[in-house]
């Protein structure tokens, strides 16, 4: 147990937590002027934690400026919650420093592994959905929530292969971790579509079963489509294209059922002009507004 993890768990009450139920944008350097100039109607900004782990200098100044202007969604990609090895205490400390500095409205990570044997893979790799892995991930989520002093949202992954050992359904697996740890879930609708197509699941059924009451944030992103060596349809979670029409349709359906939820537009590759992503933010905001009015 790390020193950070042994400190008493003081999770803020749920009412004090969370992003606004509006549309936000994943930050990229290319859009910095518009974001800091509040050019778009952005409900919040999501930042990748690992891009802000500088010791000093302009990166930390930018972090402060963003936190003073927007609710912050802090999104980690490297904690390796699904890994076989203990969580890296140095990485937990680096995350804690950013959390203490920016007081983010939300912290999220992935149901995946990213490191093994001291090597960082820079990718979100698939885990087995079995009882052993479930206990391990739940322990890691417990440890992370203690060390970071806040509730975590766990994101459903996009995967291309599956482990033969898996004998749990992905949604049951996520829900059970949430039940054991008290964490929330981040529903990435693009990941749900990508994994469903790649594994022959029905995306509609997947989203119907997803426990929306646990969802603290939604991600929307683009994917690319190809065929694998056997000629089967294969979706790649590229984050380099516009959000696909089926993803928008599933999103509207989810919001109709759940009511407005914080929604992020994610674009990490082939970054287009700000106006292009701002249009996607506006499209999500319009869907949220429609259902906010209905709810009212």
């Amino acid at each position: 147990m790390t020193a950070a993890a042994s400190s008493p768990l003081r999770l803020p009450p749920a009412a004090e937590l969370g992003l606004p139920p509006s549309a936000g944008l994943g930050l990229h350097r290319e859009h910095l002027d518009e974001v800091l100039g509040r050019a778009g109607r952005l409900g919040f900004i999501e930042i990748h934690a690992e891009n802000f782990m500088s010791e000093g200098g302009p990166t930390l100044a930018l972090l402060d400026q963003l936190a003073s202007q927007y609710p912050i969604s802090l999104h980690g990609v490297a904690l390796s919650l699904g890994g076989e090895e203990p969580l890296d205490p140095a990485h937990l400390q680096r995350l804690r420093r950013i959390i203490d500095r920016t007081r983010p409205a939300s912290f999220s990570e992935h149901l995946a592994w990213a490191s093994h044997d001291g090597i960082y893979f820079n990718d979100l790799l698939p885990i087995a959905y079995d009882a052993t892995t479930l206990s391990r991930v739940a322990d890691h989520v417990d440890e992370a929530q203690s060390a970071l002093g806040m509730r975590l949202l766990l994101e459903n992954p996009s995967t291309y292969v599956s482990h033969a050992a898996s004998d749990w359904d992905e949604i049951d697996f996520l829900a059970e971790i949430a039940r054991r740890t008290g964490c929330g879930l981040l529903l990435d609708i693009n990941n749900a579509v990508v994994s469903s197509v790649n594994h022959g699941w029905d995306p509609q059924a997947y989203l119907q079963r997803f426990p929306l009451a646990l969802v603290g944030e939604i991600h929307l992103a683009g994917h690319s489509e190809t065929r694998d060596d056997a000629g089967q349809r294969l979706l790649i979670d590229s984050h380099g294209e516009a959000i696909a029409e089926p993803v928008w349709l599933h999103y509207a359906d989810v919001i109709a059922r759940a009511g407005p939820l914080p929604t992020l537009i994610e674009r990490d590759n082939d970054i287009p002009a700000f106006a292009v992503v701002a249009a996607e933010v506006a499209q999500a905001a319009a869907i949220l507004a429609r259902h906010a009015r209905k709810a009212a």
């Binding site: 291309y160 292969v161 694998d228 060596d229 089967q232 790649i236």
Partner: peptide, 14 residues
């Protein structure tokens, strides 16, 4: 790896 079920050369994506 043997324990991964992935026809169609999908492991190469990783």
């Amino acid at each position: 790896p043997m324990f991964v079920s992935a026809a169609g050369g999908r492991f190469t994506i990783y």
